[in-house]
């Protein structure tokens, strides 16, 4: 037998564990997607049914907004917070611990608390805005077609930007201090340091974090399902919630599997493109 490459040997234990766990789910989903309730082969029927549903394209569009909006703000705010938390100042430890709180709070509780605070009548947010006269009328944050998706994105950003901050903060520690010292000798400003030293140095971390954020946002159910269940009138329906509804609420396991397969393929293409781009530029950067 040919000897396996050393690198692969290192990776093997993790790959085997993952393979043992997901092999059957992948096969099972694949088979369900091309059969009907009695197990008979139906070809592409499930795919046609699920793609012809009115809400499917809408869910795709919503998913794009949801993923795009979440990622941009999570990465920007998370990186900014990491740079801030990397400055030396008394009380930094406390601020760092406070900053992880949104991420540590159980997702379902965070979602419900936000729903409560955003509520048109019980909500503390409308109370704080209307009380001092900043606004005349309470805003239906979670019911107005213009505000409901942004509100969902804001909650998701709030929940996960601390995660980005922690990951980037860890990456910042490996930047050699002499780089900054050299830059300061040359009279570089804070912005120049950030742009020419900090960001390029944490680039591999940012690339990995962004990829994972995209995957999570693509697969996210908790926040939206807990607050609006995809409503009102499907304005916040994203594909993973549609799959969840099809499978667990409507008992359409085969259609849910078909949609999962489509979703999986699209996500896989995104990941493959991303890794390609990463492999062509990331290695060089190192």
């Amino acid at each position: 037998m040919r000897r396996l490459p050393t690198g692969l040997l290192f990776a093997l234990p993790a790959l085997i564990v993952l393979l043992a766990l997901i092999a059957y789910p992948v096969v099972y989903t694949g088979i369900l997607s091309v059969t009907d309730g009695s197990g008979a082969f139906t070809g592409t029927e499930n795919f046609r049914d699920v793609l012809s549903a009115r809400m499917t394209p809408r869910a795709f569009t919503n998913t794009l907004w949801w993923v795009g909006g979440s990622i941009i703000f999570q990465v920007i705010l998370g990186t900014a917070a990491a740079i801030l938390l990397n400055q030396e100042f008394p009380g930094r430890g406390i601020v760092r611990a406070i900053a992880v709180i949104p991420w540590v709070v159980p997702g379902i509780v965070a979602a419900t608390t936000w729903a409560w605070m955003f509520h048109t009548e019980f909500g503390i947010i409308n109370y704080m805005l209307t009380g001092p006269g900043l606004m005349d009328e309470p805003v239906g944050w979670l019911t107005n077609p213009d505000t409901v998706m942004p509100a969902m994105i804001a909650i998701n950003v709030w929940k996960l930007f601390p995660f980005v901050a922690i990951m980037v903060l860890a990456g910042l520690q490996s930047i050699p201090k002499d780089l900054y010292e050299a830059a300061r000798v040359d009279g570089a400003s804070f912005w120049e340091e950030t742009r020419y030293i900090t960001l390029p140095q944490v680039r591999p971390v940012l690339i990995a974090v962004t990829l994972l954020l995209v995957i999570w946002a693509l697969n996210h159910v908790t926040t939206i399902y807990a607050i609006t269940k995809g409503g009102p009138a499907n304005l916040t329906l994203i594909t993973p919630i549609q799959i969840f509804r099809l499978g667990f609420e409507s008992f359409q396991f085969n259609q849910a599997a078909a949609l999962s397969v489509i979703f999986f393929v699209i996500a896989m293409v995104i990941v493959a493109l991303y890794i390609r781009f990463l492999a062509s530029s990331g290695e060089v950067a190192r």
């Binding site: 729903a115 239906g140 019911t143």
Partner: peptide, 20 residues
Amino acid sequence: PTSTLENDGTANRRLFIADQ
């Protein structure tokens, strides 16, 4: 209530309890 679109049965009960 103005919050109708975000209310389920439980939310309505709470509004009833809150005298609204």
